[in-house]
Design a protein around this nucleic acid. Structure first.
Lengths: 319, 319
DNA sequence: ACGCCTTATATTCATGTAGAGTATAATCGG
DNA sequence: CCGATTATACTCTACATGAATATAAGGCGT
């Protein structure tokens, strides 16, 4: 495909088999039920920078870049994915992108000149189902994806495309699965319905679907982070990285709902949290919620020790 | 720590911020209830090679190296983790390791000169609990980990180490969790009980615990692959990548047991497989199993289409 | 041919958990 | 003091899971 580029890099002195490695961060916080990502460049890019010799490790390099570009110190970090440059748009030379997900609280609003929190759903308007399926899904994504499917050469491909669209977006009475955020973005990319897909300039660029784009493959990386986080909150107590030290159960629920992009059954949510003993009461209450004062809770950090929390789904014998 | 190396790389012409990127493969197959990994260099290394300019993508580069070094073509591939060189032992220059998990069948025994399948449990004897907890856990790992814990300076650290060892290995009536394969290896590394941990030559090297080691951080990468696979078989139908086209339910169970390193309740396993409609009968039976002839099944490839199969663990509303 | 061993397959039961709905309690503002 | 609002508690049903037991169908030795 792009084999013509194979011998392009003729720098003298440099070893042929070396590449540039970029560290890219998806830094997430939740403010007032709004899931936010830390951005730079007028919300057009994620914090990032090359892995340098001075960096002690990949993670410390990432921390350095994020702090330098946004002033935001990072707590919880996990690796997302390493992309090769075939996936990178506009990359001028051989490069790989090592992406990370970081969770933080947007507490200290000090020195936040370049710090810019943007809502996830500015980039992915179709991902927020907290008020029901957003209109853009039925009114725009569905017909345009169907057009794309019908544009295939053979009928097998047409069926295949329809099926993939239906699974990803929950068409035809399928249920919406919030964890498929990455698949949805990639499907739209493949259908050339997002701005990034038409950057090559080869095809006549149609109007992209709603949703802000980013430089290079940053929006794809953001989608990867969203998908990972939506999956992870279900089996690891990572939400608490996004919560203040003390909170009410409803605040916790609203945070999870913001991340998942869908609503949660309140009594069941409370039951789940309580029976898993994820939190403990502080003894205080707050009346700032409007009605009956709510108990305040804090995260039981001990659960990080107690549970290895890898759920089984196989009929393993307990013997 | 290794900051002294910071300015070491003074090559003229080459850009400073470029690194070597190695592609490393954990290629898994299961033969006769034995989980195997594809190795080279007398079973001392995993197939690997640098990411080169000629490679179309990271995955195709990996495929190339594995096929060249072992003759084994790869089917299913997924990325595992990208390690920085602080984690690499004996790395002479700045480098990162991008590791992958591949699943295959060891069918065509043709041209397998350099191809060498080695059992997982040669490298991790403490991971096979199919015949109960292996003796090495109680007889060797436990006392030596306790010694390590007791060797800490302050009592808080001692308690912490004991707790981590207990969680990882299921001491003190805790249950064994097969998915913690990586944590177990890293704990042994930290306690300097594996050969890799004493390569620096600084400390007087004690006798490592049983279990074959590998070059660089390859055993760590293998542990990463084992942990990932043990986790993934529980929520995605990846086992079938390791099965022949047609198989009995017991063969399928034995394969899962080989991977998980523990036994499965037979009736429940069958129920799980059947009610999820993962397989369909071929109509044939085989009498090669000793007793009553077993029905032969094949994987229902349609499930890959139908299900997005991301299980929920939150009380989401279905409305 | 018969019984027995082995493996395959089917059935049952108790328990626990998830989804969903309903009921009561404690504030505040009029 | 009433009702709007939010918090908290309880109930019910369906289904999945862990575990045990029962029946079926071959081979094999005598």
């Amino acid at each position: 495909m792009d084999q013509a580029k194979g011998t392009r890099k003729g720098r003298t002195g440099g070893k042929a088999n070396e590449v540039k490695a970029d560290l890219i961060a998806v830094v997430v916080a939740v403010n007032n039920s709004d899931p936010c990502v830390l951005t730079i460049a007028q919300a057009n890019a994620l914090p990032s920078g090359p892995f340098e010799l001075a960096h002690r490790s990949l993670q410390s390099g990432l921390r350095g870049w994020v702090e330098q570009q946004t002033g935001q110190p990072l707590g919880y970090i996990e690796q997302l994915y390493t992309f090769g440059d075939r996936d990178r748009i506009g990359a001028d030379e051989r490069a790989i992108s090592i992406s990370y997900l970081a969770l933080t609280r947007d507490e200290d609003a000090g020195a936040s000149a370049s710090r810019c929190w943007a809502s996830w759903y500015d980039y992915f308007p179709w991902e927020d189902h907290r008020s029901g399926t957003p209109p853009v899904v039925q009114e725009e994504l569905r017909p345009r994806l169907m057009d794309w499917a019908d544009g295939a050469d053979d009928s097998a491909t047409r069926l295949e495309r329809r099926r993939r669209a239906a699974v990803a977006f929950g068409f035809d009475d399928r249920s919406w699965n919030e964890e498929l955020a990455l698949q949805r973005y990639e499907l739209l990319y493949e259908a050339a319905l997002v701005e990034e897909a038409t950057r090559g300039g080869y095809s006549a660029a149609p109007t992209p679907v709603p949703g802000r784009s980013m430089i290079a493959d940053h929006r794809r990386i953001l989608a990867t982070g969203i998908a990972r986080l939506r999956s992870k909150i279900k089996y690891r107590p990572v939400v608490f990285e996004l919560m203040p030290p003390v909170f009410t159960l409803l605040q916790l629920q609203r945070t999870v709902e913001a991340l998942a992009g869908r609503l949660i059954h309140k009594p069941n949510f409370r039951r789940l949290i309580e029976q898993q003993e994820l939190v403990e009461e502080t003894g205080e209450t707050t009346a700032e919620t409007g009605g009956r004062p709510a108990k305040l809770y804090r995260f039981r950090h001990a659960v990080l020790d107690e549970r290895s929390a890898a759920g089984t789904k196989l009929p393993l014998s307990r013997a």
